[in-house]
Amino acid sequence: MPATLSLKDLHKRYGEVEVVAGLNLELAPGTCHGLLGPNGAGKTTTLRLALGLIEADAGSIELLGHALPGEASAARTRVGVVPQADSLDPDFTVRENLLVFGRYFGLARREIEAQLPALLEFAGLAGKADTRIEALSGGMKRRLALARALVNDPDVIFLDEPTTGLDPQARHLIWQGLRRLTAQGKTLLLTTHFMEEAERLCDRISIIDHGRLIAEGAPRELIAAHVEAHVVEIDGEDATTWCDKLAERYCRRCERVGETLFCYTAEPQALIAALEGMPHLRYLHRPANLEDVFLKLTGRDLRD
């Protein structure tokens, strides 16, 4: 099956900065694909290029068999978008938001009305059809934004940080919704800052930084390929001095962040035994996760 979205050697420059610098990306049909990267890595620009909203300086974009940006309008009839900023219409009720948005896709009022109950049920907003937007909680608004993106029954859905700012309950509800969509065969492209979210939801992940792809694979593959299987985080007053002396003996790689020590190792037993003898140090032993990969590949420096 041809890729749902294919970006080839994509370049986009703003003044001096090349925000997208030779990016390649293939979105396999029916998968959830995560696009991860620090702030300013080029995620949102990539999404906007992939929607045909802006023109690339070089490279090619194909979305659902349409060459972009030339055929963007035709391609977007089959696409749903959950934008980063809530852009729901505050003047409207929940129902009116969906009706008005469906019309932008050329749908007749009847057609939209017919699928309203299913959309509201999906978003957990049944019974809220006539509620005004300002009366909705943050989580409800995000779910409505998700329902709105489904009003045209799209084949592919772009989600730009869909759970930012939500509490865990609300986040889990969104996750359930996204799982139902992939189960229905929809293709998802998801950007997020939550590694846990990406690890749980995504079949495949692309990590980008400075506009380039720096790693790609299934979450488990990425973890296996880039970091040791175990992580021991050590905290305490002389954790760092201890690191200088002994860490190398017990673990393959060791990182200091402030007063905390991150020890990466394939075999943690000896390290843990040694730590047991040092009650003034607190430690946490856990399996390596996607965040470790992300921080290793993109560094711990703050980006704004």
Binding site: R76, P83, D86, S87, Y104, G106
Partner: peptide, 14 residues
């Protein structure tokens, strides 16, 4: 403020 236009631009409309 409301980003209504941005939302519409994500649909087939230009």
């Amino acid at each position: 403020v409301q980003k209504t236009w941005a939302a519409i631009l994500n649909t087939p409309l230009g």
